[in-house]
Amino acid sequence: MSTTSQRWLLASGLVLIGGAFTAFTFWISANWVMPTLLAAVAWFGLWRVFRTHLRPGEASDSERLAAGKRLDERDRALNRRVFAIVGLVALPLSLVCSYAVLLFDSLDARQVVHAQFLVVMLAWAMAGGHVLRRH
């Protein structure tokens, strides 16, 4: 069996075992519908990451960007641009939020961190879309 086939088998096995274990855990718990859906989405994402790393030549730009697989200089350039945009959004936001929490003691720091997390995640996705459209 070739090395690629062995890697495919290992990746498939890990995804299937993980999926089965997660589904079983949620099935025996009280509320299993939503967590199972979330787990399915997560495992589908993981499967795409495995597939992209194993067959990068067949993957699209967005799949390679999402999986962190860099085939050539353009992939590295795309990654750098995305991180630059996310950094430009995240750094001032972090400074403002941190200062706001320090200055106004009454603000709920937990909510501020939740908002920061959401903004950074959204910025990441939007930066990826923007960079792929332009380059």
Binding site: P56, G57, D61, L71, D72, E73, R74, A77, R134, H135
Partner: peptide, 22 residues
């Protein structure tokens, strides 16, 4: 050239300027 097909497409359509090496 050892790059992805999408890179060649991006160079041809003017969306990507290759490095000096490429």
């Amino acid at each position: 050239l050892g790059v992805s097909r999408q890179t060649i497409n991006a160079i041809e359509t003017g969306r990507y300027d290759p490095s000096l090496t490429l």
